[in-house]
Computed example of a mutant assay.
Amino acid sequence: MSQSTESTTESNPFTRPGFIVAAAMVVALVAVGIVIFLLPKGQSSAEPAPASSSTVTASPSASSDGGKSICGLPGSAETTLGTAPQSKWELVGRIATPTDPKTFGPGESDSSGFRTCFAHSPTGALYAAMNIVALGSSGSTDLEQKLADKLLVPGAGRDAAMRQAAADSRTTGSSTPIQVRGFLIKSYTPGEANIDLAFETDKGALGRTTLSMRWMDGDWKVKPADDGTTYMGATQIRDLSGLILWSGV
């Protein structure tokens, strides 16, 4: 089992120790045959909540603290997102990722596929979080270094992430394909957002993790832990209860 775990760690960017790490850590364990449910005591296995067909009703406007997108995307005074946005999806690496360059982002993309500039709104924060996850799954050292440099909040965590990205020469993508299945914006202000994302592996295992986002320099960035980890509280879940269903595949 240790040999299998080591092999998965080598090939799966979500499971290696770097700023790409912990998002699918528990899910990856399932992929190598270690099934451990880390459910809080008393949590039920209720059926997943039905997907909503409603769209976000927020109209573009100046954000409440005056922050402007670096590429001119419209902001919103909304502070909640209670339904799934109607999203267009495209593959980034092997992960279906939302895209709306004129409204929510990414508003900018370079020749390497690096994607930046998201709207100053709850939906913009959600799109930014999902795109960062997808970029991190690509296995590209160049993209990992750009992520650490451009899309992490400066500090000890970003410094650690940049060191880890520079030291990591592997370019193989994830051997355990995952796709987003749902989200929950746990909190949102014009300056900070905490976003839960749920993923499913190709084997049907579900995992949930949190990204802590900060609005700075005209874009959403991830606040990493001091060790460079961008994802917090990764756990395996039984179903999608409590989440808003949202998926591109």
Results as ranks from 00 to 15, higher is better:
Ser45Tyr: 13
Ala161Met: 03
Asp219Glu: 11
Pro17Gln: 03
Gln3Ile: 14
Val153Ser: 03
Ala160Glu: 07
Thr9Leu: 13
Met25Tyr: 14
Phe104Trp: 15
Gly157Leu: 06
Gln43Trp: 05
Ser7Asn: 11
Met213Leu: 14
Thr229Pro: 04
Arg208Asp: 03
Leu73His: 08
Glu192Arg: 09
Arg170Glu: 06
Pro154Ile: 09
Cys117Leu: 00
Ser140Thr: 10
Val26Glu: 15
Glu108Gln: 00
Thr5Ser: 08
Thr230Ala: 01
Gly42Trp: 08
Thr172Tyr: 09
Ser112Leu: 08
Leu152Glu: 02
Lys41Arg: 08
Leu152Trp: 05
Gly204Asp: 10
Ser45Ile: 13
Ala62Lys: 13
Leu39Arg: 13
Leu143Met: 12
Arg163Ala: 13
Leu152Gly: 02
Ser87Thr: 12
Phe14Cys: 15
Thr171Lys: 14
Pro50Ile: 09
Gly248Gln: 03
Met25Gln: 14
Pro224His: 05
Asn194Val: 11
Gln43Thr: 14
Phe19Val: 05
Pro13Tyr: 10
Val56Ser: 09
Pro101Val: 02
Leu245Ala: 15
Val26Ala: 06
Arg238Ala: 10
Tyr127Phe: 14
Glu108Phe: 00
Leu38Gly: 11
Thr116Met: 03
Gln164His: 04
Arg16Met: 07
Gly248Pro: 11
Ser140Trp: 09
Gly66Tyr: 06
Ile185Gln: 03
Trp246Asp: 05
Ala198Gln: 11
Pro224Trp: 10
Asp159Cys: 00
Lys102Ala: 15
Pro48Met: 04
Ser247Ile: 01
Glu200Gly: 02
Val92Glu: 07
Val21Pro: 03
Leu147Asp: 07
Ala160His: 05
Val222Gln: 04
Ser2Val: 14
Phe104Thr: 07
Leu39Asn: 10
Ala193Ser: 10
Glu78Lys: 00
Ala46Asp: 10
Phe114Pro: 00
Gly228Leu: 04
Asp226Gly: 01
Ala234Met: 11
Gly105Asn: 01
Met162Arg: 15
Pro101Ile: 00
Ala119Lys: 00
Gly66Ile: 08
Gln145Tyr: 01
Ser175Lys: 14
Gln236His: 10
Tyr127Cys: 04
Asn194Lys: 10
Ala161Thr: 07
Ser241Pro: 06
Lys68His: 05
Leu39Ala: 11
Gly136Asp: 05
Arg238Glu: 11
Gly113Arg: 12
Ser53Cys: 01
Ser11Val: 15
